[in-house]
């Protein structure tokens, strides 16, 4: 299934570019992008399906369930840079995504 290019996808890609090489939690991405879980996770699922996102479960900490982690792959980085530069040229990057939201 192809990845639909949308402002929400660009927000997620931009978020991963900001923390290149780091493992991220889903809820933190949601807070920084402002996307709802029902929008964010289908995007993460598609990125992972296309090998642009690496996923992993963190080790279990006592009393708390393990969390799912996401890290952008080199293919994902290339794709993110292409899409974001394309969007910058078209002036279509979703501006509100990072406004007034603190980093996790």
């Amino acid at each position: 299934m192809a990845i639909r290019r949308s402002p929400q996808l660009l927000s997620v890609l931009a978020e991963f570019l900001q923390s290149e090489g780091e493992w991220r939690y889903g809820y933190d991405i949601r807070r920084n992008t402002g996307l709802k879980s029902g929008t964010l996770y289908p995007i993460l699922m598609r990125l992972a399906e296309h090998g642009m996102l690496e996923t992993s479960w963190e080790a279990q900490v006592e009393g708390r369930p393990p969390r799912h982690l996401y890290k952008i792959t080199s293919d994902g980085l290339r794709y993110a840079r292409e899409r974001l530069s394309e969007a910058a040229v078209k002036g279509a990057v979703g501006q509100p995504a990072f406004d007034g939201v603190g980093a996790s």
Binding site: G26, Y27, Y41, L44, M45, T55, R64, P66, R67, H68
Partner: peptide
């Protein structure tokens, strides 16, 4: 094939 993602969402809820 989507179960892992459903579990990921459920696990994350504990931290909200």
């Amino acid at each position: 094939g989507s179960k892992e993602w459903a579990e990921a969402l459920a696990a994350e809820m504990e931290f909200i």
